[in-house]
Simulated assay, not measured.
Amino acid sequence: MTRLAETTYTERPWRIHELTSDFAVEDVWSFRTPGAGPDDFPEMLAAMRAAGGPARQPRPVRFLFAVRWKLGAALGWDKPSAGVGTRVDSLRDRLPSDLREAPRGPDDADMPLKAVYELEKESARELANKTVHTVMHLGWVQGANGDYELRMAVLVKPNGRFGRLYMAAIAPFRYLIVYPALTRQWERAWRDRGQAGAR
């Protein structure tokens, strides 16, 4: 995993830009997918799904998520009234007609981020709670060595001052624990795709 400059995301003609002018770019990362070609994005997404979500992460990551969900439950951060479709409108409500008719991508009960759209070379998922409305954008880009690679951009719209403080507070945990573990999971998913258990 390599952290990239914000411009490596903002200067590409992703469709997500049409929907997120009021969001800020929080992070941009690339993930190694050796041997990948231009048409392999659906295969990468399938491998990631087969690898599992947060429940398949290492113990420190599971612990952090468990603490976060317990805090959220105790403080009311994750009530339905704070989520997508209630506190904030879904990005699906902003979709132009051609994207509205495009495949959405499957939702998983174990994955809090819900699908907005899924195209041949990009997909977007969103989550909202009392702290933030966030979007995870995945794109498929040719890297410097000629292979294609997965890129992830995290876009955020904090919910006021509290949301900005929350994002600042969790940043060290994301960079030191969550993102490295996610990198190992996703890069391993690419390497192990097609083996028994992958779909």
Rank of each mutant, 00 (worst) to 15 (best):
2 T>R: 14
3 R>I: 09
4 L>N: 02
13 P>Y: 02
14 W>M: 01
14 W>S: 01
15 R>G: 09
18 E>D: 15
20 T>C: 09
21 S>I: 12
22 D>F: 09
26 E>G: 06
27 D>H: 15
29 W>L: 12
31 F>K: 02
32 R>H: 12
39 D>P: 00
39 D>L: 11
40 D>S: 07
40 D>W: 08
41 F>K: 01
41 F>H: 04
41 F>G: 01
41 F>D: 01
42 P>R: 05
42 P>C: 11
45 L>S: 06
46 A>H: 06
47 A>Q: 01
50 A>M: 06
52 G>T: 08
52 G>W: 03
56 R>I: 05
59 R>Y: 14
63 F>D: 02
66 A>P: 07
67 V>T: 14
68 R>Y: 00
69 W>F: 13
70 K>V: 11
71 L>H: 04
72 G>D: 04
74 A>P: 00
74 A>Y: 02
76 G>V: 03
76 G>Q: 02
77 W>C: 04
78 D>Q: 07
79 K>R: 15
85 G>A: 03
87 R>S: 05
90 S>R: 09
91 L>W: 00
93 D>P: 07
96 P>C: 09
96 P>T: 05
97 S>I: 10
97 S>M: 12
98 D>V: 05
98 D>M: 04
99 L>Q: 02
100 R>D: 10
101 E>T: 09
101 E>H: 11
102 A>H: 00
103 P>Y: 04
104 R>C: 08
105 G>L: 00
105 G>E: 03
106 P>E: 09
107 D>C: 08
108 D>R: 09
108 D>V: 09
110 D>Y: 09
112 P>F: 02
112 P>K: 07
113 L>S: 04
113 L>N: 01
115 A>R: 02
115 A>L: 03
118 E>D: 10
120 E>I: 10
121 K>S: 15
121 K>P: 04
122 E>T: 02
122 E>H: 04
124 A>R: 00
124 A>C: 06
125 R>W: 09
127 L>A: 08
128 A>N: 01
133 H>M: 00
134 T>S: 07
138 L>R: 01
138 L>T: 04
141 V>F: 03
141 V>T: 08
142 Q>R: 13
142 Q>I: 11
142 Q>P: 05
147 D>F: 05
149 E>I: 01
149 E>Q: 10
149 E>R: 02
153 A>D: 07
155 L>W: 02
156 V>P: 01
157 K>W: 07
158 P>F: 06
159 N>I: 13
159 N>K: 14
159 N>S: 15
160 G>M: 10
162 F>D: 08
163 G>I: 03
164 R>A: 11
166 Y>D: 02
167 M>E: 12
168 A>G: 12
169 A>P: 04
171 A>I: 11
176 L>M: 14
179 Y>F: 15
181 A>D: 07
183 T>C: 15
184 R>E: 14
184 R>D: 12
184 R>I: 12
187 E>T: 13
188 R>Q: 15
188 R>D: 15
189 A>W: 07
189 A>Q: 07
190 W>E: 03
191 R>W: 11
191 R>E: 14
195 Q>S: 15
197 G>I: 13
198 A>I: 12
